[in-house]
């Protein structure tokens, strides 16, 4: 903030200097220009006739999609079980992989800041930046379609997420507690088990449940690319435009997501 002396001698208070204000205005200008350009591009790629027609189409789909075909639920129990397994087994595998990565990535536990830490960080960022659907696509191309590809896709995708949160928790631990265990003459691994692990255990449990919740959501759609679970049924129903079935599947997914969130909230509440 600055004060200016005005012609009449009084001081005028403004929040920013003139230069700062110019920079800000310029920034806003560029931002608006970029947005307008982006919108224009989207608009050009859009067939506006369909858009004006959208309310009618939406009404049409809604009409066809209701009521849901409740009897179809008999065919969904298997896929629901598969979806649950993809999420749960995928989460378990990813946790086994994420723990060592996190310890290698945390500044205070990594054996080498120069070489190993960057590699661990690279694993974290690359597994995190690629969506599980893409991992599933890739794995299906490699090991064929099915539940197994889904599990591996979820597992790989979750490594980065879990390892990132976990290594941040490791970096935040209280170092004097670690120091105290070191001072007793404990070995490196004993210091780990007594000094570090108890401190990060609550964070670890929280992360595991949190990721499991997310994975329930993600595993419901993996079937769209052929990686098993209820998404397969969704994809099949969409292909034949069986809208009443689609509605039922969406309802099932919604219920699964809500239950997943409820369970994870309960468990987290119990831990913390």
């Amino acid at each position: 903030m600055v004060t200016h002396t005005q012609p009449d001698g009084s001081l005028k208070w403004t929040r920013r200097t003139t230069g700062e204000r110019m920079v800000r205005w310029f920034g806003w200008l560029v931002g608006v220009a970029v947005f307008v350009y982006a919108w224009n591009t989207i608009s050009q790629a859009t067939t506006w006739f369909f858009v004006w027609d959208a309310p009618r189409i939406a009404g049409d789909i809604f009409g066809r999609a209701t009521p849901p075909r409740w009897s179809y639920i008999d065919k969904l129990w298997g896929p629901i079980w598969d979806t649950l397994n993809i999420a749960t087994l995928g989460t378990i595998i990813s946790l086994f992989l994420a723990v060592p990565v996190a310890f290698l990535a945390a500044r205070n536990t990594t054996p080498s800041k120069m070489f190993i830490r960057p590699i661990a960080l690279l694993i974290i960022v690359s597994t995190r930046s690629i969506n599980s659907l893409i991992w599933a696509l890739l794995l299906i191309a490699i090991i064929g379609p099915g539940v197994f590809a889904g599990i591996v896709a979820i597992a790989i995708r979750s490594i980065g997420f879990c390892a990132k949160l976990l290594y941040e928790a490791i970096e935040e631990i209280n170092e004097t507690q670690v120091e105290a265990i070191t001072a007793t003459g404990g070995s490196r691994w004993q210091v780990m088990v007594y000094g570090i692990v108890p401190q990060i255990l609550p964070a670890f449990a929280g992360i595991a449940v949190f990721r499991w919740d997310i994975n329930i959501r993600e595993s419901t759609v993996l079937g769209l690319v052929g990686a098993g679970g209820i998404g397969l049924q969704l994809s099949a129903s969409l292909n034949v435009l069986a809208w009443p079935q689609v509605t039922l599947i969406l309802l099932v997914i919604l219920v699964a997501v809500v239950i997943g969130e409820w369970v994870s909230a309960k468990v987290r509440g119990a831990i913390i």
């Binding site: 591009t41 989207i42 608009s43 790629a45 859009t46 067939t47 369909f50 858009v51 959208a54 189409i57 939406a58 789909i61 659907l133 959501r217 993600e218 419901t220 759609v221 769209l224 969704l234 969409l238 969406l250 997914i253 919604l254």
Partner: peptide, 19 residues
């Protein structure tokens, strides 16, 4: 609602494309 499911529905309504 998952992004991808929303996308499927919106594609059905608005047609293919970035919109």
């Amino acid at each position: 609602l998952q992004e991808i499911i929303v996308a499927i529905l919106l594609v059905a309504i608005f047609g293919f494309g970035p919109l």
